[in-house]
Write a protein that binds this DNA or RNA. Structure first.
Lengths: 157, 157
DNA sequence: CCTCCTGTTGCAAATGATATTCAGTTAGCG
DNA sequence: CGCTAACTGAATATCATTTGCAACAGGAGG
């Protein structure tokens, strides 16, 4: 299981930084892994506290998410209004997101050409990219359908 | 001056929504226009309150920025940590941003091909895009230089 | 194993950005 | 004009996130 490998690497990371290997930190990783890819911190806090309060407190979750971000296991992938949606990367290949503003559905995609064009743009501006985020907001097919139906009803009213 | 045109259109917009044409709202537009393209709301609030407190209060600035966003004259273009950077669009053509994480410099760019590829991706997923945001975080040329210098000194130490 | 030092945890309180409530004010229809 | 609905400012609430602090627990060295 590659989750174990990730934990080992995280252990290295912590040691290098002079941090300790604690029950809470690794418990949080397990919870994140079993939650699903996309999550918001408050959501995760609630989920953890419902499942097993002994894993970690709100503060520890926030602090650990920060560490995991530094480590690179987690990425801030969507920023919508005052919400921040994270994703457990865990060796998953890089990708971008389509976000349905109606129902919140998230679709992942990857387009090699877009990545290449970005590199080209950076070169042109003598800019050294560290990371990037492409968010496309809109309507998923289901919500588009739903809107059409509603429009129809309104039109007859 | 196209600012006047924008104001006229905004006036239409307000009327359609049953909103009123007030001194504050238009004063804020002037301040935003004279501030420069990129701004954060708190920054704008301070700027306005330094220049002329009678223009509008913090609440009105927040409320008006929201309206201007709905109207489409303002866009949330960069979300970094807990900061939100807005941009006064005012008929400017669409573009994306390179953001220097060291000094905060913002570079605008536009790549037709990237836009086209995004449309293609949306089609492939039967997704109807409404808007999008591409943020590339990294180091501008000046900051890259500076880092190299520092690395040099550290190496000799 | 025990001990000690340092980093960690949980809680509660602090922050910071943004939203809202409410009482007084104003736009603008009729 | 006069009235009503919308607007405004100030203070207050909210929401996510951070921090201070006292109690606690890794883990290196004995």
């Amino acid at each position: 299981m590659q989750l174990e490998e990730l934990k080992n690497k995280f252990e290295q990371f912590l040691k290098q930084k002079g941090h300790k290997i604690t029950r809470g930190r690794f418990g949080i990783i397990d919870k994140i892994a079993s939650y699903g890819t996309h999550f918001e911190i408050e959501e995760l806090v609630r989920w953890i506290s419902n499942q097993d309060k002994s894993v970690a407190s709100r503060s520890t979750v926030y602090r650990t998410v920060r560490l995991l971000q530094e480590f690179g296991a987690i990425r801030e992938v969507i920023k919508l209004g005052n919400r921040t949606i994270y994703e457990f990367v865990a060796g998953k290949p890089h990708h971008e997101h389509l976000i349905c503003v109606e129902c919140g559905t998230i679709i992942e995609f990857y387009k090699e050409e877009i990545e290449e064009l970005q590199d080209k743009v950076c070169e042109e501006h003598d800019f050294t990219p560290v990371n990037h985020r492409l968010e496309i907001f809109g309507l998923c097919s289901a919500c588009k359908e739903r809107r059409h139906e509603n429009r129809g009803l309104e039109a007859t009213a």
